[in-house]
């Protein structure tokens, strides 16, 4: 079986600025892969290419064995963009119903999924409130629920925990681990180095390229550091051992 995500020599040029430079990586089925790096490292661009929102300049990327962009994979992939991607003038329920209909779910399916997901993110009581009236953390949880609505097999989460308080971040990682245990593959970007220890594997990105890859423990061992932040800095300064 091929890996759920397979990127080979990917490059993305934005009018002379190389956002991604010869990037290759693989995400195995059922793992949480963390893409780490500072702002501007190219993490969001990678996710957008994998979701078919951007087109690669060169190289190739496969998602669920299909070369992207390919509309046929969209129904099996969930995407949580960095911006919350919710309609602020609609209620929680109206947002979920809209995305459900876009993914072709029936009304009955939407009802069942909505109940389960609102329970998961602990927002059952907010079903009929406008997004605008929710706190930032609540909006994050609804955004995640929208990405999970159609039971995707593969999830792309772009900075899902940015601007989220520590309590909620911890519960997000509990959701993610739960999802992984149910067989869902996840590619998560973050610039919070410490939370990446929850990932099965990590890729350090800088200036559009991968500078190191491995399990959190491997990366700590190789750099003789005791935090991923220090490990990243070690690689970042030396252009480290690949």
């Amino acid at each position: 079986m091929m890996d759920d995500v397979c990127i080979r020599d990917l490059e993305k040029d934005f009018g002379g600025f190389k956002a991604i430079n010869k990037l290759s990586l693989r995400v195995k089925r059922g793992e949480i892969y963390g893409l780490l790096g500072p702002n501007g490292a190219g993490k969001t661009t990678v996710i957008k290419i994998l979701c078919g929102v951007l087109r690669p300049s060169s190289g190739e990327a496969y998602v669920l064995d299909m070369k992207v962009p390919d509309p046929s994979v969209s129904s099996r992939v969930g995407y949580m963009p960095q911006e919350l991607a919710l309609y602020r003038g609609l209620t929680v329920h109206e947002n979920l119903a809209f995305y459900g209909e876009v993914f072709g779910l029936t009304k009955a399916q939407i009802d069942v999924r909505e109940q389960a997901l609102l329970k998961l993110v602990d927002l059952e009581a907010s079903r009929n409130r406008l997004i605008d009236q929710l706190s930032g953390g609540m909006q994050h949880r609804i955004s995640l629920a929208c990405a999970l609505l159609h039971e995707p097999q593969l999830l792309f989460l772009d900075e899902p925990t940015v601007g989220v308080d520590p309590d909620l971040r911890a519960s997000f990682w509990r959701y993610f681990e739960g999802l992984r245990d149910s067989g869902i593959t996840m590619l998560i970007t973050t610039h919070y180095m410490d939370e990446a220890r929850h990932c099965d594997r990590i890729g350090f990105m800088r200036d559009g390229s991968l500078i190191a890859e491995g399990s959190p423990q491997q990366l700590l061992d190789l750099t003789h550091t005791d935090s991923l932040e220090d490990a990243f800095l070690a690689y970042s300064q030396t252009e480290g051992p690949q």
């Binding site: 929102v53 509309p71 995407y79 960095q82 991607a85």
Partner: peptide
């Protein structure tokens, strides 16, 4: 475009 909903829609089966 700015709220990201367009990205989510472009990544969905919606044509």
């Amino acid at each position: 475009r700015t709220s990201g909903t367009l990205s989510r829609l472009l990544a969905s089966p919606l044509k």
